[in-house]
């Protein structure tokens, strides 16, 4: 019994230690003057791997989510004779919540796990240590560009997701279910406020990007440098990022609903 408690305590201490070291890690990565002209090719390459290659999954998911929300939403609204409010329902739910959150979850799964695996592999094959021995800080050269690329890529992907989803819902609502096109858009425009809805969605996706990339980089950098270690780190990235995104979503939504 006592042993159980002590083990629990040990787990708690380990958890606190890893949060602390990840915080220090973040500080070491970010506390530098960005040498952008030098780093730009690396950032661009990472934007390709993280951003462009995630586009497919984002667009397809966006389309399906938009269509489903359109279908389900219309189903319910029709009962109140409020079918013409479909545009509003779609825009608000997707721009504020579904867009940023689902893109972040997909991003953590696809790009986050790929990044962790890549960094973990570099650690296991001693590429990071050899870079260190050459007198070049791998945090600045490898981690930092990926961080910046992720901060740019996820908000862009979220916007793309949101727009695709809204058009997906439009397609279902107007073309298929017969909602009037004019009232679809005008009700939406009347209800959507740029600052409250669109901007808050963008801010959410920036916060999610920060958290997801931070976790992915940290797990890769501190993994056990074996094949098994890398796969464990990748799993942890996906799990932790997803939980963190959902947690921060709640926090941000609570802050934003209250008016900010």
């Amino acid at each position: 019994m006592l042993e159980l408690i002590s083990r629990l305590g040990q787990r708690g201490l380990d958890g606190a230690q890893s949060i602390g070291s990840s915080g220090l890690f973040l500080l070491r990565v970010l506390a530098r003057r960005p040498d952008l002209p030098r780093l730009w090719p690396a950032i661009r390459a990472q934007l390709y791997f993280i951003g462009v290659l995630s586009c497919l999954i984002i667009v397809v998911s966006g389309l399906f989510i938009g269509m489903v929300v359109g279908l389900q939403g219309y189903n319910t609204l029709e009962k109140f004779g409020a079918g013409s409010q479909l545009g509003q329902l779609l825009a608000l739910s997707i721009a504020r919540e579904l867009g940023p959150v689902i893109s972040a979850l997909l991003f953590a799964g696809r790009a986050g796990s790929a990044l962790t695996a890549e960094i973990g592999l570099m650690k296991a094959t001693e590429q990071l240590a050899s870079m260190d021995m050459m007198g070049i800080d791998p945090l600045g050269r490898i981690i930092y560009p990926r961080f910046l690329a992720g901060l740019i890529a996820l908000p862009v992907l979220s916007l793309i997701f949101t727009v695709v989803a809204i058009y997906g819902g439009y397609f279902i609502g107007v073309q298929w279910l017969g909602v009037d096109s004019g009232s679809f858009w005008s009700n939406m425009q009347a209800a959507v406020n740029f600052r409250l809805d669109v901007a808050s969605g963008i801010i959410k996706s920036v916060v999610f990007a920060f958290v997801a990339i931070w976790i992915a980089m940290f797990q890769g950098f501190t993994c056990i440098p074996t094949a098994q270690g890398i796969s464990q780190a990748t799993t942890r990235t996906v799990v932790y990022s997803s939980l963190a995104v959902l947690g921060f979503d709640f926090l941000l939504t609570a802050m934003m609903i209250g008016g900010w």
Binding site: A95, L159, T162, M188, Q189, V192, F194, D197, V198
Partner: peptide, 12 residues
């Protein structure tokens, strides 16, 4: 996408 959001969706 941002432009679409600004123009079409929020009626700005």
């Amino acid at each position: 996408a941002l432009l679409v959001m600004v123009m079409k969706v929020s009626g700005m």
